[in-house]
Design a protein around this nucleic acid. Structure first.
Lengths: 341, 341
DNA sequence: AGCAGATATGTAAGCGCTTGCATTTCTCAT
DNA sequence: ATGAGAAATGCAAGCGCTTACATATCTGCT
């Protein structure tokens, strides 16, 4: 037995099993490089002592941690939950552990989190979106840490990405809305500064506007942080214009739910009086009443593929070309034809 | 300059600043033990080189990590999000980093996560609920890792806890429901095995039943994993009994939302035809329509206090007495009097 | 039986940091 | 000026592991 209250080390195990520390180490990391009998002896010692390897020591000696870091903008809502879950499940399959932190959409916090994760020995990093201060990419470059971006696919960006085309996705939806006869459009977007997803979704709407021979005056955009109450507030603003919109496209489902609530509070029927759409298709979109017409993002698939790509990058120093996934419009009940006409 | 593409170490900094590594280390960790001029020189070198301390090395040498681990049952819904957020903010104030993982309500996964977190050098652990295999407490005891339990306050448990009295909270709600005239009660509970919160909430309802001169036949309980669809399914089951309940108490808001939806799908009005209550008061409860009458849990306060207690335990090896927080019933629109009578 | 080649195990050098202790440099009171 | 005591800095020993390389032990053939 080991000294009471002290944590057993490789040495203790080696001593108890009557082998060298090297053998114990191999037993744990490359079991097939050790003969059966020895292995048994070692494993017996391991659990007799209740030994658990010291991670820090292992990282130091091996110079890799089998850890992947991910920084998401928020854990407050479910936007990233499902994708991240799939990401981590796939990583687990490959023997990696996931470390997650959230940046609250603040670039400087993200910056700090990146450094923290790197200092902790992350073998690779998953970041959301492309848009950030380039110096951070230099930093990661210097340290040779593979980085993958998710939730936004941009084939020609500096960093490979697994995601979807935010612009095209929103274009498709906006086009659909316009096709239904809406001519005065409102948009409640997330804050676009430093957020390529938000920015590109706005661009997607603009594309649809101009391709349908409408003018910027047909579109009013409000940017506000992703939050239910902000969605509600923005809705009020949008509706108090001279010519209120007949359809409001929201940057995500959370904003949309807020807008729907406010509409109902104001006595407006959705979609009879006003159409509202979301983006992401998180559970909330399904639960809301009326159900939210939204853009379905293949979150699980995205998470899984991102894990696959990143592991590949880490293990084979491969340069990933990234992967573009498709979104599709999910029609529920929050979008209809304009009231009038 | 350092060799291209190689990561700068303390040594590099020391060399560049013309001091010993000890001084650099002190500069970073105890700035006041180093004279101003030297400090400047060192700090200049630090950012000239883009130096970041190697966490693993630091942990190994210092034998502490300024890291706290937390294992929550799920990240899928918002139940733990707000509390954890507050927990981490408070930890941050005190110079600690939070590492979170989720166990999917599976004891063996939790077990593994605990070991992982310990191996990673967590200085302390936050666990949800008291109910788990005792051997894990021995393991943590041997390693002298302070552990705090949250989301469930039990003054006489082995492990100190910061939380609320699940049993009393649910008792209060059930009592209120019965006071409204309901005599046939349904309960949709989470799985109670290995989950003291779920178990105690059931007990709370039972307490109310017996204190109001009702019998077990007045209560039907269904246990099912926390999930919207399961809530809906359980609702169907409950309503297809010979004598369906007039009020259904749910183990949490997620189950309640599922039940409400199913009720609506079945053409039942909530609360006119059937009353449904939740537990936790997460955002969902507010968003749902009708708004969920539920038990408000002071999540932020709980997270904050848990951080305070745990830091105290870690830094002063203090034994915490724990802390009991109060819940209160939030009345929205999903609870009313029974239909008839 | 004896040897080559494969297989199993041991030896020991770090990985990058912190920190107790030793040494040097200040600061003042005399 | 000078020496005692405080303040600043340096020295060097690890922390617990992995792994290249060296050594010992097995194979299976002849």
């Amino acid at each position: 037995m080991s000294k009471l209250g002290s944590v057993p080390t490789l040495d203790d195990v080696a001593k108890m099993a009557g082998v060298s520390t090297a053998t114990v180490s191999r037993c744990l990391n490359n079991p097939d490089r050790v003969v059966e009998a020895t292995r048994q002896r070692v494993l017996t010692a391991v659990d007799a002592l209740g030994y658990t390897p010291n991670f820090a020591a292992r990282v130091m000696a091996a110079k890799r941690s089998s850890t992947i870091g991910a920084i998401i903008p928020t854990m407050e809502n479910a936007i990233f939950a499902r994708g991240l879950q799939a990401f981590q499940e796939e990583l687990h399959q490959h023997g990696y552990t996931l470390l997650v932190s959230s940046s609250a959409y603040k670039p400087d916090i993200e910056d700090e989190q990146i450094r923290t994760l790197v200092a902790r020995g992350a073998d690779g990093l998953l970041l959301i979106g492309h848009d950030r201060d380039p110096h951070i990419y230099d930093y990661l470059e210097q340290r040779k840490i593979p980085v993958l971006v998710a939730w936004s696919f941009q084939p020609d960006a500096q960093i490979p990405s697994v995601g979807f085309d935010n612009r095209a996705a929103m274009f498709e939806l906006a086009n659909h809305v316009i096709g239904l006869g809406h001519r005065q459009i409102g948009m409640i977007s997330g804050v676009s500064a430093g957020n390529d997803r938000a920015y590109l979704r706005i661009e997607g709407v603009r594309d649809a506007i101009s391709q349908n021979d409408m003018t910027p005056s047909n579109l009013t955009i409000i940017e506000t942080p992703y939050d239910i109450d902000n969605g509600a507030e923005a809705f009020t603003q949008l509706m108090s214009q001279e010519t209120p919109p007949t359809a409001i496209l929201c940057g995500n489902d959370v904003l949309a739910v807020g807008a729907v609530r406010r509409a109902q509070e104001m006595g407006l029927k959705v979609p009879e009086d006003i159409s509202i759409t979301g983006f992401d298709d998180i559970e909330l979109a399904r639960i809301a009443s009326p159900g939210l017409t939204t853009v379905h993002v293949p979150h699980r698939e995205m998470g899984r593929q991102a894990a696959l790509e990143l592991v590949e990058m880490v293990e084979n120093k491969a340069i990933s070309a990234g992967l573009r996934l498709d979104t599709k419009i999910v029609e529920r009940q929050s979008l209809g034809r304009p009231a009038h006409a």
